[in-house]
């Protein structure tokens, strides 16, 4: 078999294995809850009967591995169980009034919102930071490089909420250009959705561009110090040709990794930004559920984030594999 295919299969296999362990960790979390959380969730007015019904629903009467397999098979089918909140003993006696909702129905619209925000940020941030990073590397130690670098360092050091608040003061409060609350709904038309999401997207852009730009700069400088670049210069190639013909073909793998790393960073940054702008995404849902200790929802959100994270890293590695001449043209 072509070595590229075997390498790809190995890498994808590794991705699946880590996904398996991640699901195991996330599943186990509910079982690590201290004390009798069933009684805690149901509250003061629980009865022995409601506790028993709830335990049964959670499958606590079955052995661990059976519960995991059940949980995993339903998770794959998109069923992440029901929320804890909305259950309490009074309602539990009359199931029709039980306000517990299915986690997936709660997640779905928010997932779309979060991805919309991330995509909007990525569209601005990726080209911008690549341009900044590459030009800073080419003109390194120039005034331009120092300025870009120092501003990036400053931006990295700022907590997201600080950037967000400064933007709100200047762009939403003193000058009322954009709304400070991004209360989008599923029926918001596209353009209005973009308008409402501008401030959160801008916050995320500032923070990610700084990271991505610095990493791009470092990897380009590293690439430019390879002996084959010196050789190309000694062959009398012009600066532009050295970069386009000799540096660029070898830059895809590091650049893919940088983009994946920062998109992954983006989905973490999203949590804080969503809370600041009250943007109805997965991050905000997760924080709310953590405070309420609504474990099934927390599990669902964690699963979504971890899945995206693993997938992004997988894609970056696949790009490095398929652009590696050593694997493309085996001996």
């Amino acid at each position: 078999m072509h070595p590229i295919i075997t390498t790809l299969i190995k890498r994808i296999g590794l991705g699946i294995v880590s996904l398996f362990f991640v699901t195991l960790i996330i599943f186990s979390s509910v079982n690590m809850l201290p004390g009798d959380f069933v009684e805690a969730v149901l509250g003061q007015s629980r009865t022995e009967e409601t506790v028993r019904i709830f335990r049964q629903e959670l499958g606590l009467d079955k052995p661990y591995h059976v519960r995991y397999v059940n949980w995993l098979t339903s998770a794959i089918q998109g069923d992440l169980g029901n929320t804890f909140s909305g259950r309490n003993a009074t309602y539990a006696n009359q199931p029709q009034q039980n306000t517990a909702r299915s986690v997936s129905s709660l997640l779905q619209p928010r997932l779309f919102n979060t991805f919309f925000l991330a995509a909007m940020t990525a569209i601005i941030a990726i080209p911008l930071s690549l341009i900044l990073g590459i030009t800073a590397a080419l003109y390194r130690n120039s005034f331009y490089d120092r300025t870009v670098n120092a501003s990036a360092l400053t931006a990295i050091s700022m907590p997201e909420f600080f950037v967000a608040y400064v933007l709100i003061i200047f762009l939403a409060s003193i000058n009322q250009f954009f709304p400070s609350l991004s209360n989008v709904t599923s029926s918001t038309p596209f353009l209005e959705r973009v308008y409402l999401s501008i401030l959160p997207a801008l916050t995320l852009t500032l923070v990610t561009v700084a990271h991505m730009m610095r990493m791009t700069r470092a990897s380009i400088i590293n690439l430019l110090s390879s002996p084959y670049i010196e050789m190309a210069r000694l062959k009398g190639m012009s600066r532009t040709k050295v970069i386009i013909k000799h540096a660029l073909p070898n830059a895809w793998a590091p650049i893919a990794n940088i983009i994946a790393f920062n998109l992954a960073y983006l989905i973490v940054g999203v949590v804080v930004v969503e809370v600041v702008f009250v943007y109805p995404g997965v991050g905000q849902l997760m924080v709310d559920s953590v405070i309420k200790r609504d474990i099934p929802v927390v599990q669902g959100c964690a699963l979504v984030f971890a899945l995206t994270y693993i997938l992004l890293n997988l894609i970056a590695d696949v790009i490095s594999i398929v652009t590696n001449p050593r694997l493309l043209y085996p001996k």
């Binding site: 002996p227 084959y228 010196e230 050789m231 190309a232 062959k235 000799h246």
Partner: peptide, 13 residues
Amino acid sequence: YVAQSAAAAFNPA
């Protein structure tokens, strides 16, 4: 110019 380490002086791509 002919470099000492040919393996490093040729562009792998």
